[in-house]
Design a protein around this nucleic acid. Structure first.
Length: 274
DNA sequence: TCCCAGGCTCTCT
DNA sequence: AGAGAGCATGGG
């Protein structure tokens, strides 16, 4: 873990290695972060808003208490994982090494399970700018007002809505999937916290009983919301990359770090089109 | 305008 | 079990 310095209004993550804000917050794993004109990032997770910027090798956090940092952000930004070590381990394969070095500032964001589920349901057959817009409208219309914006609406709130209510977020055919997910979560048919400790295959199958959740969305939820870092979401970009860079298969050297390597490859190929 | 987007469901072989 | 159309909507 890095040294953390708590001041009155700022928290410093000292000498933050493998933590690039743009790579981490704008790589398509989370959809509620944006950068203002001064380059400061702000976003909302777990019902709290914070701002971040990089300075002299440190990451500076504004708007968080010490308690929130310890209870929320430390885990959200995955600060207990040693990314330098992970990169070293998976860099046995030359192409993985190139992708990992190119993307070495990405950290996996450990998001709220319910938010990850809804976000990646919305992501299907969609583009990132529009995904962000839909999620923003979802929060503004149905989320609790908090300092700096709106929290992500709970499953309980969503479960009480109708398709007509949801029309305002303009999510298209995905609206009925969102409702089904909310109903299954509220009824207890799906227990997201339990899926965190379930084994990967069991949790994945359970998620796929939700309408609109297939293999790819399930893997995203497992990876970004449920802590299963072995999940390897295969979207159109990754499939393309596996074909052109790896002969169709994930290199074995990634071991248990499939999710992180997937993120490296995703970022790498999206920024290196030929 | 037209193509396509961090896919999935449904239907038809 | 494998392939293909259709899906809502709008960004580029």
């Amino acid at each position: 873990m890095n040294d953390i310095i708590f001041e009155k209004n700022k928290i410093y993550i000292k000498n933050a290695q493998n933590f690039n804000l743009e790579q981490t917050l704008d790589c398509g794993q989370a959809f509620r972060w944006s950068q203002d004109l001064n380059g400061i990032w702000s976003g909302i997770a777990f019902g709290k808003q914070i701002k971040l910027y990089a300075q002299d090798g440190d990451i500076v956090i504004l708007g968080s208490t010490k308690e929130d940092f310890q209870n929320i952000w430390q885990n959200y930004f995955d600060l207990d994982h040693d990314y330098a070590k992970i990169i070293k381990e998976v860099s046995v394969n030359e192409t993985v090494k190139r992708a990992a070095e190119f993307s070495s500032g990405i950290r996996l964001l450990n998001q709220e399970p319910w938010e990850a589920l809804v976000s990646f349901i919305i992501s299907q057959n969609n583009n990132i700018p529009r995904i962000k817009g839909i999620i923003e409208r979802l929060c503004e219309n149905f989320g609790e007002k908090i300092y700096g914006g709106y929290a992500f609406p709970s499953a309980e709130v969503i479960a009480r809505l109708t398709l007509d209510d949801l029309a305002v977020i303009r999510s298209g055919f995905r609206a009925k999937y969102i409702l089904d997910a909310a109903q299954k979560v509220v009824s207890g048919e799906i227990d997201l916290n339990e899926l965190k400790i379930s084994d990967y295959d069991t949790a994945r199958e359970k998620l796929m009983t939700i309408k609109g959740v297939g293999p790819k969305v399930a893997d995203c939820v497992l990876l970004y919301g449920l802590g299963h870092i072995e999940a390897f979401p295969r979207d159109v970009w990754i499939k393309r990359a596996l074909d052109t860079l790896f002969d169709g298969n994930i290199p074995e050297c990634v071991g248990n770090y499939g999710g992180i390597v997937q993120q490296y490859i995703f970022h790498y190929i999206r920024n290196n089109q030929e």
